[in-house]
Computed example of a mutant assay.
Amino acid sequence: MKNEPLVSIIMPSFNSSQFIDQAIQSIQKQTYDNWELLIVDDCSKDQTVPIVKKISVNDSRISLIVLEKNQGAAVARNTGLKNASGKYIAFLDSDDRWLPEKLQKQIDFMEKKNIAFSFTSYEFIRENADDPKKIVHVKDKMTYKDVLKDTRIGTLTVMVNRELTGEFSMPLVRRGQDLLTWITILKRGFIAYGIDEPLSEYRVVYGSLSNDKLTAMKRTWNNYRKHLDLNLFQASYYFTFYAFNALKKHYFEKEN
């Protein structure tokens, strides 16, 4: 329908040939079809680019941007943002997937309530198919201070109404730029509204940077102190809650 708002989906890629076709297919299977997919490749050395080119030949909604040199996920995402045309911005990494009704349910939710920022629950994709399923459930809403205490917002679930928030970009840090972006948006007074339904699938790759919990904690502390300019007392206060909630989310919440 002509009055359906356009969703710009940002997907950074780097040596993603093993899973990127699944990620793209999960977008193509969406019940909501007014979207554009901007894949920004960060100088892959494998077959990622040929795979994307082959798929995009038959789908004009998919655009490929190849960076001239490897610069990291933040630059890739910002490049996608600069080239995005949609009212709504969504993010999907090249090894994750969406369930078919993800976009439709989130758009309906945001349009009905004129929401600037939303996120949803998500499920882990395990390397071992016999592992029990695990869902990260979300709260109805989160403020700036809530997110400092609990980093439960999954990037693959986020949708931002850019007409309400204005233009935004991600800070140029190696890891954690997504969380810093959400915190920066919410610090301006916006509220993140949650849909407690798993509409995305996050792939757990053991041994990856994102799966290193100690590294994640060190990075979060550094972000609180250096990038958010929290003083020692503020950083310690919020980090205590963050550490507790991170451990709870990964190790103590009930498997499904």
Rank of each mutant, 00 (worst) to 15 (best):
E4L: 14
P5V: 05
I9P: 06
I10K: 01
M11N: 09
P12S: 01
F19P: 03
I20Q: 06
D21H: 12
S44W: 03
K45I: 15
V49A: 06
K54E: 11
S60Q: 10
S60K: 10
V66H: 06
Q71A: 11
A76D: 03
G80E: 04
S94M: 02
Q104F: 14
Q106F: 07
I107M: 13
K112S: 14
I115E: 09
A116Y: 01
F119T: 02
E123A: 11
D130C: 00
D130G: 00
P132M: 00
V136P: 03
M142R: 03
I153Q: 04
G166C: 09
F168E: 01
M170E: 07
L172A: 04
G176H: 01
D178G: 03
L180M: 09
I183N: 01
T184F: 02
F190K: 02
I191K: 02
I191P: 03
I195C: 11
E201M: 14
Y202K: 06
Y202I: 02
V204I: 14
V205G: 02
Y206F: 12
K213Y: 09
L214K: 09
Y224R: 06
K226W: 05
F233W: 12
A235K: 08
T240H: 15
A246H: 11
L247H: 11
K248H: 11
K254I: 14
E255R: 08
N256D: 12
